[in-house]
Design a protein around this nucleic acid. Structure first.
Length: 529
RNA sequence: GUCCCCGUCGUCUAGUGGCCCAGGACGCUGCUCUCUCACAGCAGAAACGCGGGUUCAAAUCCCGCCGGGGACGCCA
């Protein structure tokens, strides 16, 4: 049993789709709080909305959290002392507590049907009045209960007074008990499935949660929940409501808004009839960078912008949380990612500071994250199909990566930039092809000749030899650089020419210049297509 | 409509009565570097929503207004 002082927090998503970026932020703050304090991070699946919950979504949430490196100590797949951790497996528990509250006169059976209430709701709406739940069944006794009819269990909200709770970020929040928004709220639906406010409270009580940190949109749920804790005689956890992350127009950051503003909104690709909405993982974001951006949204630690995973755990505290909602800035998120990619260790063992290691001793580095993006382009990171083999491939990958690192803002971009290093022949784009005109052929051949004589085949000597040749010929580097770049990379933009050549190596670079020259020479003649 | 909450550059934020004619970051503009694309460096434009108080002194405290958001379901 956990000592009462131990910190226990939870992340309780509904498995109704791909893990949302806002959910990640909530999970992150909870995770940080737990890790910071040496507490326990519980993952609970709230699948009581049977219409929308799917098994697949649950698996997706696991997968996304694992990719993010947000590990949980107790959860549906791991178990723990207060399981089960999936709400639909706890139905008997909720029933038990609900019945107990009814027996104690703190809740009651309500036989009013949904249709009946909807009618009243519409009537109130028509009169432009606030719908107030009529206490139809509040004061009835078991003797009044109709036989065999479906009923819900409602909470007996106090009719007078007010309820105050302390929020770690917003301070004291007081709501009048007669506020229509909390009137005799439903605990258990007629099918026996608990509603959010009830299920969450029962679970949080039973799982001994000490801090509930969630989105600010839940602030209004807190008052009825506090009332429930009291009715149950359970100790109140701390509450911390996080300011919300909104779309650029201040609307809720929905998938719709994500599409509208081209903002990735889920961790992994999300597919529906409207097509694919790319996820952060597939777009080539670093989990650490994403977490960094998300952490800094609504939270700050002085002027520091870039945090490693370790620093986040070290510095996080509730005091740094802000109150006001914010708007998601995709450009800044990308910039933070770029920052992380520039400094991320190539392999875990290369990291002198021993920093971004993941939970559970998992080791990841730049290469680990890059790999799937290379594979997505048909480039294996460990094999070089039909070519010299593994060693040469590894050399090219490393050498190429060195030229590309500071440029790539995402792992996907890095893979894209690495493409011509890892293919036997570069794939030419239209602009590059256009540079390989017949006039360029002699120039490329001459340049090839110069390069062939350079020893060692490194950037500096290559540049010096080239400059000497250009000076003797009365030519400018600009005359040769673009055609050569096109021949070597198949593109019109790349890292500096001599760096590219050195990374490719003598043999490969010379071969590409030859091929480029041949292509250029033939470009005028075969003008058919 | 009712209840609750929020309000510093375009965006994320620092700021807890004097250090602020408001600092950092992203973005933006210009310059430097330059074989292309980037990176980097330098410079610049850019905010305390408005009006009243309190105080020797207010971005910071109080009140009002305005603006924004959330909740008000047998959704979570």
């Amino acid at each position: 049993m956990a000592p009462p002082s131990e910190v226990r927090v939870r992340f309780a998503p509904s498995p109704t789709g791909s893990l949302h970026i806002g959910g990640v932020r909530t999970a992150l703050f909870n995770w940080l709080y737990a890790r910071r304090s040496g507490g326990t991070f519980v993952l609970r699946i709230e699948d009581t909305d049977q219409e929308r919950s799917t098994e697949e979504s649950t698996r997706g949430i696991f997968e996304a959290l694992r990719w993010l490196g947000l590990d949980w100590d107790e959860g549906p797949d791991k178990g723990g002392p207060y399981g089960p951790y999936t709400q639909t497996e706890r139905l008997a528990l909720y029933r038990q507590y609900a019945d107990r509250l009814v027996e104690e006169g703190k809740a009651y059976r309500c036989y009013a049907t949904k249709e009946e209430l909807d009618k009243l709701r519409r009537l109130a709406e028509a009169k432009k009045q606030q719908f107030v739940y009529p206490h139809l069944w509040r004061d009835k006794t078991p003797a009044d209960w109709p036989e065999g009819k479906p009923y819900v269990i409602r909470f007996k909200t106090p009719l007078t007074g007010e309820t105050t709770f302390h929020d770690e970020v917003f301070g004291d929040i007081t709501t009048p008990n007669d506020s229509p928004s909390i009137q005799d709220f439903i605990l258990l639906r007629s099918d026996g499935i608990p509603l959010y406010n009830f299920g969450a409270v029962i679970d949080d009580v039973m799982m001994k949660i000490t801090l509930v940190a969630r989105g600010r949109d839940h602030i209004g749920n807190t008052t009825p929940q506090v009332l429930l804790y009291r009715a149950l005689g359970a100790p109140l956890p701390k509450f911390a409501h996080l300011p919300m992350m909104l779309a650029p127009d201040g609307k809720k950051l929905s998938k719709r808004e994500g599409r509208k503003y081209n903002i990735p909104i889920t961790v992994t690709d999300f597919v529906d009839d409207l097509g694919t909405l790319a996820g952060y993982r597939e777009l080539g974001y670093s989990p650490d960078a994403l977490l960094n951006y998300l952490a800094r949204f609504g939270w700050s630690h002085g002027d520091q912008e870039v945090f490693s995973r370790r620093e986040l755990v070290e510095f996080f505290d509730l005091v740094g949380l802000n109150k006001s909602d914010g708007k998601f800035d995709a450009k800044k998120c990308l910039a933070v990612n770029h920052d992380h990619l520039k400094s991320e260790a190539l392999t875990p063992t290369d990291d002198q500071q021993g920093q971004p290691h993941y939970p559970g001793g998992e080791r990841r580095g730049y290469l680990t994250h890059l790999r799937p993006h290379l594979e997505a382009r048909g480039l294996s990171p460990t094999r070089f199909d039909g070519l010299e083999g593994r060693e040469e491939h590894r050399r090219l990958l490393r050498a190429g990566l060195a030229t590309v690192r500071e440029r790539a803002r995402t792992f996907a971009e890095a893979a894209q930039m690495l493409d011509y290093y890892l293919r036997e022949e570069p794939e030419f784009d239209d602009k590059a092809r256009a540079l390989l005109k017949p006039e360029a052929a002699p120039l490329l051949r001459a340049f090839r000749g110069v390069a062939a004589g350079v020893e060692p085949f490194a950037a500096k000597p290559l540049e010096e030899a080239t400059n000497a040749w250009l000076a003797a010929e009365g030519k400018n580097i600009k005359d040769v650089a673009q055609p050569a770049r096109a021949a070597l990379t198949g593109r019109v933009a790349s890292p500096p020419l001599f760096d590219v050549m050195a990374a490719l190596g003598r043999e490969r670079a010379l071969a590409r210049l030859d091929a480029g020259a041949a292509l250029a020479a033939g470009a005028g003649a075969g003008a058919g297509g």
